[in-house]
Design a protein around this nucleic acid. Sequence first.
DNA 1: CTATGTAAACAAC
DNA 2: GTTGTTTACATAG
Length: 750
Amino acid sequence: MKTSPRRPLILKRRRLPLPVQNAPGETSGEEPKRPPAQQEPGQAQASKEAAESNSCKFPAGIKIINHPTMPNTQVVAIPNNANIQSIITALTAKGKESGSTGPNKFILISCGGAPTHPPGPQPQAQTSNDPKRTEVVTETLGSKPAARDVNLPRPPEALPGQRWESCAGSEAAGCTLDNSLTNIQWLGKMSSDGLGPSNIKQEMEGKENRHLEQSQVKVEETPGASASWQDSASERPPYSYMAMIQFAINSTERKRMTLKDIYTWIEDHFPYFKHIAKPGWKNSIRHNLSLHDMFVRETSANGKVSFWTIHPSANRYLTLDQVFKQQKRPNPELRRNVTIKSELPLGARRKMKPLLPRVSSYLVPIQFPVNQSLVLQPSVKMPLPLAASLMSSELARHSKRVRIAPKVLLAEEGVAPLPATGPLQEDKLPLGEGLSPLLPVQSIKEEEPQPGEETLHLGRPIKVESPPLEEWPSPCPSIKEESSHSWEDSSHSPTPRPKRSYSGLKSPARCVSEMLVIKRREGREMSRSRRKQHLLPPCLDEPEPELLFSQGPGASQRATELTLPTESSEPASRLGYSQEEGGPFKTPIKETLPISSTPSKSVLPATPESWRLTPPAKVGGLEFSPVHHPQAAFGPLPDALGLTDFSTTPLKSIPLFDSPRELLSSEPFDLTSDPFSTSSPSDMEVPKPDSPGPEAASLSANRSLTEGLVLDTMNDSLSKILLDISFPGLEEDPLGPDSINWAQFIPELR
DNA sequence: CTATGTAAACAAC
DNA sequence: GTTGTTTACATAG
């Protein structure tokens, strides 16, 4: 829209000069703003104390003694009232004292309680290998009132089971935890050396944290190196903006945050942004929020406040903490990378890569149709270190490709729609319907058949098979269509959507429909625009209708889960849209998946389904996300690895049958996945005639998975092959032309 | 090419 | 001024 004219001029400027140096100057502009706001008062003070005292005596009555039997281990007795900062301070101080050669492992014991030994922590022992690292095992810290970030309204209660990150699942409490962990970690990193940057510490500390239930925290030290914490502090975090935003949002119980809070959270957790980064980082944050579909803006009921949320389907619920752990865990190397980057001169900074390693491989979204509901368990550990990377990369990808929903208005049923936005579809729809909450809304809308390639065909078949779309739609058919149209139209059409007009969906949320997310580019290639535009309506939150799933913790999650049974795939197919542009290669495929996402917009609460697909697809599948289990289902997923190789994973393809496998034998497929395979195979691509039966639902699900898998992984050709194989006899599929009679070649198939 | 990061122009508030 | 969108470009992979 903007006319190009202006742009050019502007653009020209490039970055040149390095900016500046540091911080003070630049940042100052913004920094001031965010003061301590959220931090907790109490803690802040505490932290100060700690800081002061830290040199020798450990604040808050913390005692550190050598472990009687374990060599490099010290036992840290922590009074119940001690806060994290104090602990950190003590550990830091101790670390300094000891030097790099000193004990690198600490067992934290709360004074009040019995000193138990660390349950979970065992692993740490292992880690000990690394000389540099300091490990800390926490036993029982009382929970405390954590400050938490920003918005959390509710007081967290302790979550019982969670231990590690609970964030995902739990809410506040979990979050808190996470945060705390997170903070600590960072601190550890930074401070470890010994310096003690009080400020930083304070900041961090200030925030939330405390409340560790049993968590393990590891702190890395880099003693020797001395890279100095300064560096670290100044170092740009290895996370992309997108990832940081997610961390921030996921740190709250509601899983939503205002822009300002996001800024604050980031500054608090990553001092780099507070002190060193140029003010433009906020612009980047905003840019990312607007750009990625996974970030959905919700408006408060009254319309006055906008909260940014993560589309449930896309939300892996990762937290800094989690990511941090993962990184550490698996490979030192990865970790290293992260850490390492450091030094870039200022100017160079840009170069840094973002963070997490990108994994390209898999990304493909798989759709697990079904749901996560099953999957969702929060806990899960994520295996991979990759998580982070995944997040960033995949999610991103996802988002882009998929496009998730746009913003929603919260209006929700109850609520009145916001004036502004709104109108859209709502008009049309009667919101009233309450319909099932579940509705999958899917959105689907888009149908584009895209004739084309194989890849496409994948999609297609599916579609065909399932009627799904319709199903949901039923409730609000009209809507759907409309919506779809709208989206599409919008896309096609000239464009102009007034921003958000759409919103639509929301309608009762449920119905919603979806606005598809799709937006895409309008004309031509577009490659450019990367964003979504949509808004979301209203829904709101609170209600957590989602219960459906039950699960838990985060409402939002639930939403995600909802998804429905049937459909699953379809949407994707619709989405296929992307392909168009996608061009020839794979892209399309992936995109397809995303489709699922297409649905878009719904707000969390209300409409679950839309995303449903997405999630899995995107991230989930790929990612390790604990959340989506689907993978698990597949079996192979070994996450971590999996990621990497997708060859294997992806191929999950395997669902296909054995035979193929053999064919491919050359390749290593594992089929492990199989479970699905049985059923799935067929689904995937071709519609089977019989399909439906009992399994229908399940199938669909499977199918979707399959599809996803297939798609991803393979290129067209590959996929095609699979297809054919799979259903040798079945049908003639459209593909027909290409299809080969595998049977001939392969006896087994036959 | 894609994913990210930056910077900036605008539009609404 | 803040927030949100969108362009345009730069860079790394």
